[in-house]
Design a protein around this nucleic acid. Structure first.
Lengths: 195, 195
DNA sequence: TTGACGTTACCGACCAGTCGGTTTAGCCTC
DNA sequence: GAGGCTAAACCGACTGGTCGGTAACGTCAA
């Protein structure tokens, strides 16, 4: 982590906080600048447009979370144990990854019919995450059919995104924990006192 | 269904279509008026503000879907069969209820931190739907513990909302069908060739 | 003739993006 | 290490257009 945050970093950080809370259209460039303590002129020095910022932010968010997923432990040599550890790691990291919401979900719901550029970027990244999770879950399914693992990955993402909607609606983030606990149970994993 | 659609009805219908696609902030009053072929002055004859329209629309949407849920068949006299019929009815009606998205989910994600009035209305209606589903699912759980049925209801809503996010992201509504089929399977219901 | 329904023109606030300029930091030369 | 050059970083007033909402004015049925 750089001790000195650049203006670009500050803008991205501010934009993420604002857009997670108020959406893309609901967040103004002025607000982002104010929160980041960066002048508007300087904003347009780093980003060519609001959409450009949105794309950079999306990429940043995606890379960060993919890195977290990649930090799952791989205990022993049994692939099944690796997969189970991944599930627990995802649940443990939920607060870090989605404590303020999910930028991909927020953008998807809001911009799918409005901003094709961002919409395509979101779609591609969702697909990429699903791919990564499918790989990780593969040892969980009998016969290691990739299609079955993909279904589990899909249901995991569905569960996270849906829980975030309810968490937002009720201002109660425990919806995410409960939903993920139920997801875990459907996999037939031993009662998890995760970690 | 009234043969003669009033201007108010046309406005609500237009607003629903626009807001499901583009969100609350992303939809302008002018667009709604244009789609409904109603003048702007007349819009403000029926609704005191955009927010007022949003609340009316939310209520309309909620009541309509609650009515659909209420149309679930109740075959025979066994409560367990009623509950299973409710599950199948929900899955059958998914296209009708959420074919264009879910207004409650869309508003929740977008307006939770922005518009307390609408946010509260959304929260209350989510709670009410959960209550209704909990009642319906009660016979499914051993011991008929209300808390267990509430968990199933919660997971159902989570599944729908999450699947709608992915459906939007990929412009592929089959995500909803698959997610609900998986949900059904976790309940241990017999392989469903529903209907 | 009153009031619900309807219309157009308009207003002020706001917002993304621009512009003309200043400051700062690195780097070369002497 | 002083002076000079360059480019990146930085600034905030301004602009053109958009949006929610209002005003002032018809129309027609009861």
């Amino acid at each position: 982590m750089p001790l000195k945050k650049t203006s670009r970093d500050k803008l991205l950080e501010a934009a993420e906080a604002e857009m997670l809370a108020k959406g893309y259209a609901g967040t103004t460039v002025d607000e982002i600048c104010a929160r980041a303590s960066v002048s508007k002129g300087n904003f347009y020095h780093f980003f060519s447009s609001k959409e450009d910022l949105g794309l950079a932010l999306l990429d940043d968010y995606y890379e960060r979370n993919l890195a977290i997923i990649g930090q799952a432990p791989t205990p022993g040599s049994d692939p099944r144990r690796h997969a189970r550890a991944l599930v627990d790691h995802l649940i443990d990291s939920a607060g870090t990854m989605w404590g303020g919401g999910c930028l991909m979900g927020t953008f998807a719901l809001e911009l799918a019919e409005t901003n094709p550029t961002i919409a395509n970027a979101v779609s591609a990244r969702f697909r990429s995450v699903a791919e990564r999770l499918t790989d990780g879950f593969l040892p969980l399914v009998s016969g290691k059919k990739r299609k079955d693992a993909a279904e589990i990955a899909e249901q995991f993402i569905v569960t996270v995104e849906g829980a975030l909607v309810l968490a937002r609606a009720h201002h109660d983030w425990s919806y995410v924990d409960r939903a993920l606990a139920r997801f875990r149970k459907t996999l037939g994993l031993p009662q998890g006192a995760a970690k």
